[in-house]
Amino acid sequence: MATVPLAILFEGDFVLKLLPVESEDTMDVLAEKARTVTIGVHIADQPGKAIRVRKEGNEEPYPRDMTVETAGLTPMDGVNLYFE
């Protein structure tokens, strides 16, 4: 397991943020880690909605149980997050 720092942009945020995740983290775990630095900080919560992750430029989000490593994300890759 290795730490993978990502550049995340949560929809509605004004700034890209650094988010260190682990290569074995699933997209749901990544989303929860992203929540701590975005939701309630610069973005209002939307209770009950899932947070999805997709690579910049992709239409479809990653499957929620896919790991960072399987998704092929490497250090400082940019990913978008949004409320489903």
Partner: peptide, 26 residues
């Protein structure tokens, strides 16, 4: 609780208008 991502050229945080121009340029 984290750092902003910094532009490699300007050395400033990467910012934009929420929902509009905020975008990843990589």
């Amino acid at each position: 609780g984290t750092l902003p991502v910094i532009c490699k050229v300007s050395n400033l945080p990467v910012v934009g208008i929420p929902f509009k121009t905020a975008k990843i340029e990589q």
